[in-house]
């Protein structure tokens, strides 16, 4: 299997202060890779660097072999990379439907997006019922669904998800994980999944990396990480 995403020696930070140190990562196409680690480990910074919001000081970011560094943020979605940011990034002032439209506008006009929107509503019927509501009127779970649905309308090859389970009830978290599994198995979607909820993440992930203080301290298959008691105690706290 070839890696859809390959990160080599990535060093990045804010205002000259490095947060990520020499990060290596490889995510094969059609798999889910979990990124685990304590608060402040640099997980969000890693995603922000991959999507161009933080400029790397050193290293390479290869998507399907071509380097993404230096591309403006708005170009990355055109390369097939969708980033659902921490806090989900639903635009409060726009309606549910406008948020979804915006997700696909870079590749098709409104008319051509009717199909993808219908698919999104089939996946998340709750969004259809609320399609004329403004983003700020949604519940936390609905917001997460909208953020996911909007990223799917873009038909990305690689999805970066930053803590999709944050603040959601266990049942909703389980639904989201099941959906990710389905998208991978049926749609061949590749996902880089940042999670604090280690058990949920490892239940769907194929592989995982553990980060601490901006470094990757462990990288293995999800099964092997679950079985590694010492690592679990040291970094994952269970």
């Amino acid at each position: 299997m070839t890696a859809l995403l390959r990160v080599e020696g990535l060093t990045a930070g804010y205002g000259g202060v490095p947060v990520l140190h020499d990060v290596d990562l490889a995510v094969p196409e059609g798999t889910i890779c979990a990124v685990l680690g304590a608060n402040g480990a640099g997980k969000t910074t890693l995603l922000r660097t991959l999507s161009g919001m933080v400029r790397p000081d050193r290293g390479r970011i290869l998507l399907d072999g071509s380097d993404l560094r230096g591309l403006p943020v708005e170009q990355l979605i055109r390369r097939g990379l969708a980033h659902v940011p921490e806090g989900r990034g639903v635009i409060d002032e726009l309606t549910v439907e406008e948020n979804l439209w915006l997700g696909g506008l870079f590749r098709a006009d409104r008319r051509a997006l009717r199909g993808p929107l219908r698919e999104a509503y089939e996946l998340f019927p709750a969004l259809y019922a609320r399609r004329r509501h403004a983003g700020h009127q949604l519940s936390g779970g609905e917001r997460q669904m909208l953020a996911l649905a909007r990223a799917l309308v873009a038909k990305p090859r690689l999805m970066l998800l930053d803590e999709p389970s944050l603040g959601l009830a266990p049942l909703v978290v389980a639904q989201i994980m099941a959906l990710l599994r389905r998208l991978r198995d049926d749609g061949g979607l590749t996902v880089l999944l940042v999670e604090q909820n280690v058990r949920s993440a490892l239940s769907v992930a194929d592989s995982a990396v553990v980060m601490a203080q901006g470094r990757v301290v462990a990288a293995d298959s999800a099964g092997a990480l679950v079985g590694d008691d010492a690592l679990r105690h040291a970094y994952l706290g269970f």
């Binding site: 999507s51 919001m53 403006p72 943020v73 708005e74 170009q75 990355l76 979605i77 055109r78 969708a82 980033h83 940011p85 990034g89 635009i91 409060d92 002032e93 726009l94 406008e98 439209w101 915006l102 997700g103 506008l105 870079f106 590749r107 006009d109 409104r110 909007r150 873009a154």
Partner: peptide, 23 residues
């Protein structure tokens, strides 16, 4: 579509860029 992009860019420039809007 342009109007939608303009509103999105005004309300949430960062998120809009992630969605491909040239803010």
């Amino acid at each position: 579509a342009t109007g939608l992009r303009m509103r999105a860019a005004a309300f949430a420039p960062q998120v809009s860029r992630l969605l491909g809007v040239n803010v």
